[in-house]
Design a protein around this nucleic acid. Structure first.
Length: 197
DNA sequence: TGTAATTTGGACGGTAGATG
DNA sequence: CATCTACCGTCCAAATTACA
């Protein structure tokens, strides 16, 4: 199944499993109901920022939107079976490494980030706290983390590893001139930072 | 600067339940 | 059965954004 088709089905299933209408999910996620409807009908390719908001509305990390809740956990995710999703806005590509259905506390994602591109995740009141470690494999990335305190910024080079807690706003930027590649390890923290009713 | 794609809010039509 | 209301998802025009 194409990743967009899978995403559309997964989003609709998640929404219905939570008993939410388009309007309710729109209010909860900050994404308009029209946009959610378009995604569910595969009539648009949502940006990473939009998907990040939707995942957060379900209390899930972004990679969870690309992995099916497999009834029987598979210990191996073959390269050919790993879902790859490309952000239409920036062209950045994320490959879901962790096998589906595995109840592991860690999720692994490989990211290819085009030179000169940026991706901005901005969620005013995140529902789910996510701990994340970023291991640079190739190239450079500039990570800016903005929360309640002063913004923090790190320029990462090949081999560097950054551990961070996702705050309200995080910007990934590849200053170029080469495309970057890195590994993300994500865990959901025990205590979500804040939660709306 | 023009074009294409994404995103939004209002308008619209379909459906289910309540009421007379 | 007809009508009304509420709710839901889709359609549409316009604004915004990215890119050549």
């Amino acid at each position: 199944m194409q990743i967009d088709a899978f995403l559309a089905q997964r989003l609709r299933e998640l929404r219905q499993a939570h008993g939410l209408t388009l309007e309710q999910l729109a209010e909860r996620s900050g994404v308009s109901r029209s946009m959610i409807s378009l995604i569910e009908r595969q009539e648009t390719s949502p940006t990473a920022a939009v998907l990040h908001k939707l995942a957060d509305a379900f209390g899930l990390p972004l990679p969870a939107l690309f992995t099916p809740p497999a009834p029987t956990p598979q210990p191996v995710a073959r390269l050919a079976d790993q879902p790859v999703w490309t952000d239409p806005a920036s062209g950045y590509q994320r490959r879901q490494l962790t096998p589906g259905g595995v109840a592991a506390p860690v999720e692994l994602v490989e990211v290819h980030f085009p030179a000169g591109q940026s991706v901005d995740f901005d969620i005013p009141a995140p529902r789910v706290g996510i701990e994340q470690q970023l291991w640079m494999l190739e190239g450079n990335m500039l990570i800016t983390l903005a929360g309640a305190a002063e913004p923090q910024r790190w320029l990462l080079a090949s081999g560097d590893c950054l551990a961070m807690t996702l705050g309200e706003r995080i910007t990934f930027h590849n200053p170029g001139p080469r495309s970057a590649r890195y590994l993300l390890a994500l865990t959901r923290s025990a205590a979500p930072s804040r939660r709306l009713p």
